[in-house]
Write a protein that binds this DNA or RNA. Structure first.
Lengths: 164, 164
DNA sequence: TCCGTTCGGTTAACACGTCAACCAGCCGGT
DNA sequence: ACCGGCTGGTTGACGTGTTAACCGAACGGA
């Protein structure tokens, strides 16, 4: 398999994206943890819960919003429950189910974290890009995500053993 | 603290970037692991080693190239050593030091993985973007990385009013 | 009704990353 | 030569993500 190598422009774009990805997520993670004691995963979980009616969601609904594997969700919710950020109760209409609810402590935390997080996002990305750049960033992100979603729907492209 | 919220365009760009980041790294990680038994971390480690003279580097040099914490590097090299991908020997000129070398097995693996990895990068990013988009992606990435590097150098991280 | 299948969720085992502590070797000033 | 600080590297404890196995409840035919 003689793969076409990347030319200079392509190489630069790829490396730059990788570097941005690394440093950006590292920064977000660190800021949230140092200032609020929350991981980005905690933040997103609380954000979704706080936006839900009554601050409660079925476990699988939360999982769908976060695009998390169910075992990851279960483990993470267990830890968040131990820290008093969420509560877990059995679902009345489906005996299998769990209802996840944000606690007052969780609400306080996300309420304090959100503005700071927002400031960080501005400080490190939004405020340093032009409207054109923002527009194109969204376009690029959507294209890539679209392509990846297509690949996931069509595994046969990369996995000839797939039986559809 | 009434933080300025994101307008629609900004929100879209941020969300799109986050989604791309998640799905992209998940894809890269999965492809490498399923087809070559390598994590992205393994891949980058082997890539740097294979490009070094004689396929060997001092541990701290490798750490600098990867931007990894020293403990992470140490742990990861231990696991890679157990798998026979790298070897660790004491440095002759500095009794503290470790010299990391890629093994023939490691070379074989990265040689097999690189073309496939490259194909994936093309398939999912490069080949679906225009030259303009690639150019702008690099520009954006550099801007963000520049800003983050500046923040890391500045002790005034806690002063979000600082405008460059 | 009964039985196989799917669904929602938990658990155990493992790979991975971070932090803090630690150790030995180097280095510089005195 | 000595001593304190720095440097290169390892270790242990802990939080986190993935995989695979598992369980009970719901569902969907015969």
């Amino acid at each position: 398999m003689a793969a076409r190598w990347l030319d200079q422009r392509e190489e630069r774009a790829w490396r730059s994206l990788m570097k941005m990805q690394d440093s950006l997520s590292e920064f977000i993670e660190r800021q949230l943890r140092n200032r609020c004691g929350l991981s980005h995963a905690d933040y997103q979980t609380l954000a979704h819960l706080s936006e839900a009616p009554d601050g409660r969601l079925r476990s699988f609904e939360l999982g769908a919003l976060l695009h998390w594997e169910k075992s990851r969700l279960s483990q993470h919710l267990g830890r968040m429950q131990n820290r008093g950020l969420v509560s877990r109760t059995r679902c009345l209409t489906d005996q299998r189910g769990a209802v996840i609810a944000i606690t007052p402590e969780g609400r306080d935390l996300i309420a304090a974290a959100a503005p700071q997080h927002l400031t960080d996002v501005r400080d490190v990305l939004i405020d340093h890009l032009t409207a054109t750049e923002l527009e194109m960033l969204a376009t690029i992100g959507d294209k890539v995500h679209e392509r990846l979603a297509a690949l996931q729907r069509e595994p046969s492209i990369h996995d000839p053993t797939a039986t559809t």
